[in-house]
Design a binder for these strands. Structure first.
Length: 333
DNA sequence: GGTCGCTCAGAAAGGTGTTG
DNA sequence: CAACACCTTTCTGAGCGACC
């Protein structure tokens, strides 16, 4: 469930097996020196998807701190696939990193996590490809669509991202017939919670050290589901219902629906941002959107399908059936 | 009965000064 | 610089009368 991560180890004793290269950094105190290096996953012979190291040396006091930065997911598998780390693999990662750094597991566990990306890839049917259009609002985040297939909800310290993993993995290649078929049939939806500053969002206290991530691994599914559930969902794809207008309220209801459709769902929702009454805003918005919802058939039920697949994948990554094994793994470290 | 606006508390987001 | 602690602001949902 983890992808990109930045870990800070204090009081790390630099391994002599690593080739440290001095790095010039402008505007830094004269007593500090910087060295960079890379570590690879030595379970594989190829050297791809490294983790970048930045060693800060305060040579006066002989104190070193190490920053580890990169995608442990790609690093662990040595490829960019739709696989996601489960608990056992995460524990594996910790041990591997300790080995590569020539330090003990305890040191890695104590590492501070200052940046973290929690995410997963869902295997959906290709009809689900349009689902981004239905994710219309998330709290007060800035909604932004990039190159038509990527959707962001941005805050200062973190953002939510939805994108087509298959396109991302195969963007620079010529597709074979098999790949064409896969793309036609399936949609690899990737969802990520990208924390640029862990200390400034909800991961703080729960996922801000490697040890806490390990101990709180079982909380990750509900955290991910909470973020998804908080996104305002409107089915903008299904056909309109055939509406019978029998009285005035039916008429107003239908007019509101037509108005939202004509003016645009996103634009209509934005109107509420300017609404003066803070307290009623969310309630009104909910009513407003429900009016729209009651006028579409919702024949496909995108949201339900998304949540079902999300739950399936989370169960697998959380190792629900292996709870005892999970506890044992924690105890062995 | 339903709507509106006020209050409150807790959570979430953002701003800023300090620190190594 | 990056990261954090600390503080302020904003958001959100629930509760509760007042009013039509």
């Amino acid at each position: 469930m983890l992808d990109k991560i930045k870990i800070i180890l204090k009081n790390y004793t630099p391994s002599e097996d690593i080739r440290w290269k001095p790095k010039e950094v402008k505007n830094c105190p004269p007593t500090k020196y910087f060295y960079i290096a890379k570590i690879y996953n030595s379970n594989f012979s190829k050297k791809k998807f490294s983790l970048k190291l930045l060693l800060t040396a305060d040579e006066k006091n002989d104190i070193f701190s190490l920053s580890i930065n990169g995608s442990i997911r790609k690093w662990y598998y040595q490829k960019n696939s739709r696989k996601d780390l489960n608990f056992k693999e995460f524990i594996d990662c910790i041990e591997l990193i300790a080995k590569e750094l020539n330090t003990d597991v305890k040191t890695v566990l104590s590492g501070k996590v200052t940046q973290l990306e929690v995410g997963l890839t869902l295997l959906l049917k290709s009809e689900m490809r349009e689902i981004n259009d239905c994710l219309v609002k998330y709290r007060n985040a800035e909604r932004e669509v990039f190159e038509e297939t990527t959707l962001y909800f941005k805050f200062v310290n973190y953002k939510l991202i939805f994108y087509d993993k298959f396109l991302e993995m195969n963007k620079n290649t010529i597709w074979s017939d098999i790949e064409e078929n896969v793309f036609k049939k399936f949609y690899f939806l990737r969802f990520e919670i990208n924390a640029k500053k862990v200390s400034g969002m909800t991961f703080k206290n729960k996922f801000d050290t490697i040890e806490k991530i390990r101990n709180n691994w079982n909380m990750l599914p509900s955290v991910i589901e909470k973020y998804i559930n908080d996104i305002v969902f409107v089915d903008v794809i299904s056909e309109d219902k055939k509406i019978e207008i029998n009285d005035y309220s039916d008429f107003v209801n239908y007019l509101t629906f037509l108005g939202i459709k004509k003016y645009g769902v996103l634009e209509s929702i934005n109107l509420f941002g300017k609404s003066l009454n803070i307290n009623n805003k969310s309630k009104k918005l909910e009513e407003f959107i429900n009016t729209y919802r009651t006028n579409v058939t919702n024949e496909f039920d995108f949201k339900a399908k998304l949540l079902v697949e999300l739950r399936k994948k989370l169960d697998r990554l959380y190792n629900k059936s292996n709870n005892i094994i999970t506890k044992k793994l924690i105890n062995t470290l």
